[in-house]
Design a protein around this nucleic acid. Structure first.
Lengths: 146, 146
DNA sequence: CTCGGTGTTTTGAGTTATTCAAAACAACTC
DNA sequence: GAGTTGTTTTGAATAACTCAAAACACCGAG
């Protein structure tokens, strides 16, 4: 019952409506499944949503996640070798740190200095809209193991 | 027969040996399939290798690509929404520009200024080894269409 | 408050990219 | 030239999605 108090549901409903999406139980439940800083795969979202909405199907989760990330209410990332992950931190174009051993993902704010990573040395005629930065390394837990 | 002249095969053999890998026809054929600047998926590599080595199986291609990228003779990238791609440009940690419409990939040298993207604002206890930058945009061909 | 249209979700099946395992085979070593 | 070990073949299985049709529910109009 962490965040199922009416206020957050109302707020979530308003955000869905503002995005032009209908307000439905599965969508509210998916939004509710995310805690700040978490990066969840479709399977984990399904698991969590199932607790409050046992009749939900995995396909519904895929649909909801697609709709929410399409509407900008969720951000989708896809680190190499991992299934797609979703997070609730949106709006800023923050970066990610991924553990190459266990796959753990954490957020990092934009790199030092300006947002330099938005300017490649040559655009080859492309019109850019996003720069995505992923840092790879070993998380504290995986460091002893190498 | 573009690059099947003995010299390049000898060079490729030497690189395989230096990496501690046995020299085999499928491996030479895979290395030979890459032209500088190309980013090929396993299916395309299989198609090309099949021309000179018709008995090769797709699974062999997966095995070879895994061995070669593991040994650092090929670099593997995995843009979101795309199957894994491989390229022969290695050693420098260059970046990529991906067309969000057609998926076309081109190389870009490191961003303006220093290699700033190697320093996130906080490492959260991670020990970093790579920074991966992907720029998303529309390639010249896809720009009219939006 | 009820009805209807349209957007969602369910149900069920199919696809793509990839991995696993065992047996046949081929490089390199001695 | 024979053996050992790493590769490739053959065959099957898996994970993560996507597609399509039918059942359903949200919400604006009346």
């Amino acid at each position: 019952m962490t965040s199922s108090i009416p206020a957050v549901r109302d707020e979530a409903s308003a955000r869905l409506r503002a995005a032009g999406l209908k307000v439905t139980e599965p969508r509210l439940a998916v939004l509710d499944a995310f805690t700040p800083g978490e990066h969840l795969g479709a399977d984990e979202v399904f698991r969590r949503v199932s607790r409050s909405l046992p009749t939900t199907s995995p396909q519904a989760i895929y649909g909801v996640l697609g709709a929410l990330s399409g509407a900008g209410l969720l951000r989708r990332i896809e680190p190499a070798g991992s299934p797609a992950l979703y997070e609730s931190r949106i709006g800023d174009n923050h970066h990610h740190l991924v553990c190459s051993s266990c796959g753990k993902v954490t957020d990092v704010d934009c790199v030092v200095g300006e947002p330099p990573c938005l300017a490649p040395s040559a655009t080859n005629g492309f019109v850019l809209h996003t720069a995505e930065v992923t840092f790879w390394g070993l998380c504290p837990e995986c460091q002893p193991a190498g």
